[in-house]
């Protein structure tokens, strides 16, 4: 009996000692996710189009401009920082986290649209452009390549060329087909259960973006799992995911079913279209189907790499010379 009482007392004492630890607030920026540019003045940023974007540049501002567009929607440019290398080859490289993504300012869900993403890109180019004759190139990965194409379709004369790495599609059905394949996991898989089981630990309202972003970041492990069809080498580096913009733009797509190919037949500049060997959800057939919207395509396969071919050494060592040759030839 005395032993039982001792055990109970020890357990209660431990519990009370643990409960004395100062508790943290889950929705405070800086606890589970980093602060955004509107909360941390030390971060590099620009204020354009009624928002504040996390942005930085590398290279001589007078050189030809290369704007890097990250994927997601809702990822950030950290995983594309290999592209800084273009700055040493005569390019003015511009990185920015898209609105509501990475370390850029968060907005209410209702504000997001494809047009506002295009307007942000126009504003970023205008902000950094140093002369009217400065040529502008886009390098988009995944969703970033879709955004680049939507931009070229809307403003073809403003872009001199583009490198597009595994865009899901330029018409909505192609996007749905690709997302369906790339997000297909067995019902009993560790990856799927890691995503669904989390919902009983953390829930957030739409205005609690720190919680939602954190939760979305945890789900990034799905893309790096061995069960993923994306074929990546490992985990991607990131700053902060944007959960609300990701959900918002997907809802916009489902509602508007966009077609970003309507003017592409008029765009005769060569496009470098990249796909990877190891992304089982993509492949040559999908690459040919999606890229066929452009009249002038250089289609390249990156051997030994997965979807995030720009981020890992094997993919980068193949991608970089192809991309540089393409840009220099234009």
């Amino acid at each position: 009996m005395n032993q039982t009482l001792s055990i109970i007392s020890a357990t209660l004492l431990t519990f009370f000692i643990l409960s004395c630890e100062k508790e943290l607030s889950i929705n405070d920026d800086g606890n589970l996710v980093p602060k955004t540019v509107d909360q941390d003045a030390s971060l590099p940023s620009i204020t354009v189009n009624n928002t504040q974007l996390h942005a930085e540049t590398f290279g001589n501002p007078a050189n030809r401009m290369l704007v890097i567009l990250h994927g997601g929607p809702g990822s950030d440019y950290r995983y594309l920082l290999n592209c800084k290398a273009f700055a040493n080859q005569g390019y003015y490289v511009v990185f920015y986290d898209q609105r509501g993504s990475g370390l850029s300012k968060r907005h209410p869900k209702s504000i997001y649209s494809i047009q506002i993403m295009l307007d942000d890109l126009s504003a970023v180019i205008a902000h950094y452009k140093t002369s009217a004759s400065q040529r502008v190139f886009l390098l988009g990965h995944s969703w970033g390549a879709m955004l680049a194409t939507a931009y070229i379709n809307a403003y073809p004369k403003s872009i001199s060329g583009a490198i597009l790495a595994e865009p899901g599609g330029f018409i909505w059905q192609d996007v749905l087909d690709y997302v369906g394949r790339s997000r297909s996991f067995r019902l009993t898989s560790e990856t799927l259960n890691d995503a669904t089981y989390l919902d009983q630990f953390i829930t957030g309202k739409q205005n609690e973006q720190a919680i939602l972003d954190y939760k979305f970041s945890l789900m990034a492990s799905a893309d790096e799992s061995a069960e993923s069809s994306l074929g990546n080498d490992g985990p991607l580096p990131f700053w902060r995911s944007g959960a609300v913009i990701q959900e918002a733009l997907f809802e916009v797509g489902n509602k508007e079913k966009p077609d970003w190919t309507t003017n592409l037949n008029l765009y005769t500049n060569k496009i470098l279209f990249i796909y990877s060997e190891r992304n089982k959800s993509y492949g040559l057939a999908h690459a040919q189907k999606v890229s066929s919207a452009y009249p002038n395509i250089q289609l390249e396969k990156i051997i030994g790499a997965g979807h995030d071919m720009i981020s890992f050494p094997t993919g980068w060592s193949t991608f970089y010379p192809k991309a540089l040759n393409y840009l220099n030839a234009l």
């Binding site: 630890e21 100062k22 508790e23 943290l24 996710v33 919902d199 009983q200 953390i202 829930t203 954190y214």
Partner: peptide
């Protein structure tokens, strides 16, 4: 990626 703070988080972290 980010030095997220370890520890006990409160108030309630979720509910369904």
């Amino acid at each position: 990626n980010f030095a997220a703070k370890d520890g006990w988080y409160n108030p309630a972290t979720g509910g369904n």
